[in-house]
Write a protein that binds this DNA or RNA. Structure first.
Lengths: 186, 186
DNA sequence: AGCTAAAAGCTAATAGAGTTAGCCAACGAT
DNA sequence: ATCGTTGGCTAACTCTATTAGCTTTTAGCT
């Protein structure tokens, strides 16, 4: 019998896909193995543990979202950049709720942890958004935290089905972008 | 041997305490039982399952935070009310990260689900904050979502240790309250 | 006080998930 | 073609949730 030809990336990708489909909490090692056409213990040749797998999913999500953010913001500034970043982030979380939720327990184990690297890239994009506004350098870190908290919170609540009357969530999101844009212009 | 005298509330309280100490994910039925001086299966006389227990923890957290919000906002309006609500929420999440994290998978099973009731009370307090500002009624729901997303996001990220340079997180939080206050005043 | 039925704990047992150990076959480099 | 490495498999173990069935406390009633 030929081999399955797996590697850590393939296992991570399968797990991430499952996470989006059934929720991160329901991603079992057995389910991942089944998806890959392999027996459960075989996974341990590629990932150290389920915790390790979750960390890899988180890193994958951060890299993906970082890439999308960078792409979406090419050549944009000010309100345009803000809107692009916001929509990109929101779309990603809605499309990939499982992988995104893996990023919540942020425990980078060091500066070269893929999670830290991916996270830093996301933060770079947020910093790029702020660069389009005239902000007191002393307030930049505060503004970064504002964006991060707001987008993360909104996306998380939406992904969890936390908003009633789903109909005008889009409108709320636009309103919210506008609110931030006006505020950042002082 | 006399009985332990448990009831659903006692089990929930023990589990919530453990959640704050060791993290919700590490709250095992065995651990809860041990804390209560009882054997694991005995817990099932009071709660239906671990999922049920988690829902009870979530409901408890929402009621607690709802009460604290109500108290903190007595007689305050405008910026004062906003700051009181923000600080109350943040303190609660920092002090009770475990129980709070149980509220994330919001799936109220109906209008009389304790989770829905507790959540509604929290939302009431947020609405009271907004009542202190002059907001177009059509925008109220958007503003509610703004507050909810922002506070939830900030608290979640902070509880997860997601902010570097922890020193000035307090300052960021104040800045953020100010930002929202100014924005809500149009 | 004694009786009885419900409730609360306990022990024993089952099922499912993560993980480890050790075996064997496939694959790449020589 | 062969040899060492690597990837996959089976078997086995642990830990956790959950159920079944038994026993005893306990509250309410007479």
């Amino acid at each position: 019998m030929p081999r399955a030809g797996l590697d850590p990336a393939a296992v991570t990708a399968a797990a991430a896909g499952l996470a989006d489909e059934v929720g991160l909490a329901n991603v079992t090692m057995g389910l991942v193995a089944e998806r890959l056409g392999v027996r459960t213990p075989s996974l341990y040749k590629h990932v150290a543990s389920q915790a390790d797998l979750n960390r890899r999913i988180a890193a994958l999500a951060l890299v993906e979202v970082g890439d999308k953010l960078r792409d979406a913001m090419q050549g944009r500034a000010g309100r345009d950049a803000l809107a692009a970043a916001a929509h990109t982030l929101r779309s990603y979380v809605v499309e990939h709720p499982g992988r995104y939720s893996a990023t919540l327990p942020l425990n980078p184990q060091g500066p070269d942890d893929p999670i830290a690297i991916g996270g830093a890239r996301v933060l770079e994009s947020l910093a790029a958004v702020l660069a389009g506004y005239d902000i007191d350098p002393a307030d930049t870190v505060h503004a970064m935290r504002l964006l991060r908290s707001l987008f993360h919170g909104f996306a998380t609540i939406e992904a969890a089905g936390g908003f009633e009357m789903d109909t005008d969530v889009d409108k709320s999101f636009e309103w919210l972008i506008d609110f931030i844009d006006r505020g950042l212009k002082n």
